[in-house]
Structures are given as C-alpha cells and as structure tokens.
C-alpha cells in the first residue's frame, strides 16, 4: 500500500504543474490589468506604467511564469499585490476557517443525509421515502444565498437564538484568544468560548451543508436500494437474520463505497472555500478571498490559492481511495 501512496504522491507533481500552468495562463488571458485595478478611477497612465514596472508585469510572460514556479518550488507563494502581505501567511490565516466550516457542513450532511437515505431505501415508496426524496430535491434546488439570508433573519434577527455572522462574538474577545486559528480546537483547549464558537458555526454549516446533505441522501438511497436487491441480502434474510443486522451489517457496509466517494468529492469541494456562505456569514475563509483576488487581478493570491486548493482536493481524494480498502477487504493497493 505504501508503494501505491508514494506513486500517487509522485503523481501529484505533474498535476500541480498542470494546475499552475492553467491558473497562470487563464489569469493572463482574461483582460484587466492589476495596476489599473489597484489605482482605480484615479490612476493616470504614468502611474499605471510605474506600478506595472514595480509589480514585474512588464516582464515577458514566460519569465513571469518561471519566477512563479521557482518561488513555488521553494514554498514561496509570493506577496499579494494589493496588501503586500505574504500569500502563504494569508493562507495560513484563512485556511482554518474554511476547514472548520467544511468539517461542520460535512458533519451536518453526513449525520442527516446518510440516515435519511437509508430510511428512504428501507421504506421504499412509503411516506418516509417521499419525504426524504422531496427533502433532497428541495435541498439541491434552494439557492444558498437565499437560504442563508432566511436562516439569518429567522434565527438571528427574529428569534435571536444564534449569531448572524462571524466566527466569534465581540464579547468573547474578553476571555478567548485564538491561537491556532482553529477556533473549536482553541476554545476546547482553553476551556473557554466553546459555546460561542459553536453557536457561530451552526447557521453557516447548515447553509453550506444543505447541498451535500441532499446529494448524500439521494446517493445513499440509490446505493442501498441496489445492495438490498442483491442475493447475499436475500440469503441473510433467509437465514433468519434480523432486519437491523441485514441493513446495518450486510447492506450498509457494501453500499458505503459510492457514499464515501461522494463525501470525499463534496468535502474536497467545500475545502476550496464557499464564496456565497462566506459572504452571507462574514466567514473569513479562502473562497471569497480567492474570488476577490480574481476581481482585483491579484495574481499571487489567485495562483497561490488555487494551487493550494487543488493540492488539498487531490489529497482528500487519495484518502478516499485508501479508505476503500477499509470498507471492502477485496480491494488491495499494489
């Protein structure tokens, strides 16, 4: 298995090289000059030219790419042309927020979506099945922006049960100090602010988790239905196994492969940031950061951000592939 992992990790090199080339090329292909955006309505042509010179945009594009890749190989993602801050330090500051939200959203999706899918499959064509499939349909159809705002107005503005945005209340600043950037972890370690941090996670996690939840419900339902019609399930039932054992031990374990695949893909996508959810809940993640980088033509931010997100996505998928062996002993990696 380790040889397989090593091979997959080596395979990352051409993938990341291709991604670096694509993101670099696309950024240069879209019209709009970073110097013009930075100077805004006021910039004179002379100022634009001087800034282009300073940012190295006057150099030939292949040379700019070589500089970018050279820095990348040394772990240097450059500096944001807007804030002059190191992209690496910005990533380190923003990544924990994205990770925490993605994990919370996936928990919402898995803890509700998978049982709902199982219920729909086991009670096929019943009212439960109809309810679950309708719920899944609504889940994938609801615009995230609308859902997020509705949740804010209901639970934060009207009922005042939950905070409307951010990761921490201003009041919590008095007794809680973020250290690692992973606020849940920090609050648990400091034994303070746990409720405050968790309460800030609820609405964004529900908003972001709705679509994966709906997808998981549907995938779990169809995977379970397929497995439940297999001979070995019929055999298990014929042997007099209880329905609970048939479903949980025989059917679910075999139905999990496609479910885990989808979980991996969805999780990888969420780790790339969630622009809409981050915007509604003022969540300082990397999605809206990269989006702003595109609008501002902040090349180092977009290049560094996209390469990092791609790396995470590939690694998550590698983990998913490895988990197959745990779920199905017939799968072996060589």
């Amino acid at each position: 298995m380790w040889a397989y992992v090593a091979r997959r990790l080596l395979g990352l090199i051409p993938v990341l090289f291709g991604i670096s080339l694509l993101v670099f090329g696309f950024l240069r292909a879209i019209p709009g000059d970073p110097a013009v955006v930075m100077l805004g309505e006021r910039g004179t042509p002379e100022q634009v030219e001087a800034l282009r010179e300073k940012l190295g945009l006057n150099r030939p594009i292949p040379e700019q790419y070589l500089i970018f890749v050279g820095q990348l190989l040394q772990g240097d993602l450059g500096r944001s042309t807007f804030s002059l801050l190191e992209v690496r330090s910005l990533l380190i500051a923003k990544w924990p927020a994205t990770f925490e939200l993605a994990v919370a959203a996936m928990l919402v999706a898995i803890l509700i979506g998978v049982p709902l899918g199982i219920l729909a499959a086991v009670r096929k064509n019943s009212i439960w099945d109809n309810l679950a499939t309708s719920f899944a349909l609504i889940g994938v159809s609801l615009p995230v922006f609308w859902l997020g705002l509705m949740l804010v107005y209901l639970f934060a503005v009207n009922l005042q049960w939950l905070p409307s945005g951010g990761r921490l209340s201003v009041e919590a600043d008095a007794f809680f100090r973020p250290v690692t950037g992973f606020y849940v972890l920090d609050s648990l370690l400091q034994r303070s602010g746990v409720a405050d941090v968790l309460s800030h996670l609820v609405l964004p996690a529900v908003t972001l988790g709705t679509i994966p939840l709906a997808i998981l419900t549907r995938i779990t339902r169809s995977a379970m239905l397929e497995v439940l019609s297999q001979d070995y399930v019929r055999t298990a039932r014929a042997k007099g196994q209880t329905e609970r054992v048939v479903i949980w031990r025989h059917a679910l374990k075999n139905a999990l492969l496609p479910v885990v695949t989808i979980i991996g893909l969805q999780f990888g996508t969420l780790l790339g940031g969630a622009i809409l959810t981050e915007t509604i809940f003022s969540w300082p993640g990397i999605g809206s950061w990269i989006y702003e980088g595109i609008i501002n033509r902040d090349y180092p931010v977009v290049q560094g951000g996209v390469v990092f997100v791609a790396l995470v996505f590939v690694l998550i998928n590698l983990l998913v592939d490895l988990s197959y062996a745990l779920l199905d002993p017939r799968i072996q990696y060589r």
């Binding site: 705002l149 503005v157 905070p163 409307s164 945005g165």
Partner: peptide
Amino acid sequence: LAELKAGS
C-alpha cells in the same frame, strides 16, 4: 444590515 438588526 442583518447583523445590525440582530444587534451584533
């Protein structure tokens, strides 16, 4: 505006 309404 939502945060202002919510008082945060």
